[in-house]
C-alpha cells in the first residue's frame, strides 16, 4: 500500500514528461511529498453525502472497491523464500495453494464497489458509469480467466509459487522460460484485460471524464473519493504484480539458483521482482497518457468477439501441444 503515493507521483511526473510539462516540484524534493499533501487536503475536505442517495451502499462502495485491490497484493510471492533462524520464511503475505483462484475471486469482487457507487449516488452520470463498470469488468474477466487457464495448463498448478518456479528455466542458457514467451497470446490477452480490470485508459469508460464527468465517483468527495482513487492505483499495482508473477517469471531471473536461501540473495530477488513491476507500471502510465478511449460498444465488441474467441483458441492450442 505504501506504493500508491509513489505511484501517484510517478504518474504525475511521467505524464508531465509526455506533455512537455514540469509536474509537481514544490512540495518536498522533486515534489515527492505532493501525494502526501493531496491526501491531507482530501482528508480535510467536507464529506458530502448528497440527498436521495442510498446511504448504506454509498458509504460501503469505496471500501468494497478498495479492499480487493489491497488484498490482491497479499497473495503475490515477491521474493525467494528467505532462510531465517533455520526456518524458511516465504516472502508472501498469504501463502496458499489456491493463489490464482483467489486473485480471480478478488478481481471479480472489485466490480461491486464501482457498481454500488454508481447506483447509490442517485446521479445519472454515476449510474451510467456504474453500469459500464459492471458490463466491462464482467466481460473482461472472462477473457482474463481464459488467458489464465492456458498458463495454469503450462504450469500444472494454481499455486503462484509453483508457477514462478516453473518459469525459472532457460532455453539455450539465456532465453528465459517465461510464460510471456511460452504463451505470448495469453500474455497479450491478459495484459489487455488487466487494463480493463483496472479501469485505466483506453478502458476507463466507467470514469470517462469527457462524457460522464467523473463516472461512478462523480458524487464522492473527501476520503471516500480518495479511496476510489487509491483503489485504482492499488489495483494497477496488484495487476502488474500478477502479470509479473504469471508471465515474467516473478522474482526469478534466468539461470538463478533457486535453492539459495540466504537473506541477501532473497532481497536481491525482491529487487528483481519490483524492477519488473516498475517496468510494467511505467508501461501502464505511458499508455494512459497516449491513447484515446474506446466507445462502449466497441469495448464490448473487442471483449466478446475478439478476446474471448482468441482465449479459447489459445487453450485449445495449449491443450493440443500438451497432448502431442
Amino acid at each position: 500500500m505504501q506504493v500508491v503515493p509513489v505511484l501517484v507521483w510517478v504518474e504525475r511526473k511521467v505524464s508531465a514528461w509526455i506533455q512537455d510539462r514540469v509536474g509537481p516540484n514544490r512540495v518536498g524534493p522533486l515534489g515527492l511529498f505532493q501525494p502526501l499533501a493531496d491526501a491531507i487536503k482530501l482528508l480535510f475536505k467536507e464529506d458530502v453525502v448528497p440527498e436521495g442517495t442510498d446511504r448504506f451502499l454509498f458509504i460501503l462502495a469505496p471500501a468494497v472497491a478498495f479492499a480487493p485491490a489491497a488484498l490482491l497484493a497479499t497473495v503475490i510471492p515477491f521474493g525467494q523464500p528467505m532462510m531465517v533462524d533455520g526456518e524458511l520464511l516465504p516472502l508472501q503475505v498469504c501463502r496458499g495453494n489456491v493463489g490464482v483462484l483467489l486473485t480471480l475471486a478478488l478481481t471479480g469482487f472489485s466490480v461491486y464497489g464501482l457498481a454500488f457507487g454508481g447506483w447509490a449516488s442517485n446521479n445519472k452520470y454515476a449510474m451510467l458509469g456504474g453500469l459500464r463498470a459492471g458490463a466491462q469488468m464482467l466481460s473482461y474477466e472472462i477473457a482474463m480467466g481464459l488467458a489464465l487457464v492456458s498458463v495454469l495448463m503450462t504450469a500444472g498448478s494454481v499455486d503462484l509459487n509453483v508457477i514462478v518456479l516453473d518459469q525459472t528455466g532457460t532455453w539455450g542458457g539465456f532465453i528465459p522460460k517465461w510464460n510471456a514467451l511460452r504463451q505470448p497470446l495469453a500474455f497479450v490477452l491478459f495484459f489487455i484485460a488487466a487494463f480493463a480490470e483496472t479501469n485505466r485508459l483506453p478502458f476507463d469508460l466507467p470514469e470517462c471524464e469527457a462524457e460522464l464527468v467523473g463516472g461512478y465517483h462523480t458524487e464522492y468527495s473527501s476520503m471516500k473519493f480518495s479511496l476510489f482513487f487509491l483503489a485504482e492505483y492499488a489495483a494497477m499495482f496488484a495487476s502488474c504484480c500478477l502479470i509479473t508473477t504469471l508471465f515474467l517469471g516473478g522474482w526469478s531471473l534466468p539461470g538463478m539458483d533457486v535453492h539459495n536461501h540466504s537473506p541477501f540473495f532473497s532481497l536481491l530477488t525482491v529487487a528483481v521482482f519490483f524492477a519488473k513491476v516498475s517496468v510494467l507500471l511505467f508501461f501502464f502510465i505511458v499508455v494512459r497518457w497516449t491513447l484515446p478511449r474506446f466507445r462502449f460498444d466497441q469495448l464490448m465488441h473487442l471483449g466478446w468477439k475478439t478476446m474471448i474467441p482468441l482465449g479459447l483458441a489459445n487453450i485449445l492450442f495449449t491443450g493440443a501441444m500438451a497432448q502431442g
Partner: peptide, 12 residues
C-alpha cells in the same frame, strides 16, 4: 483528441 481521451495531444 482530448474529448476522446487522448489528453496529451491537447496539452501539446
Amino acid at each position: 483528441a482530448m474529448d476522446l481521451g487522448a489528453f496529451s495531444v491537447m496539452l501539446w
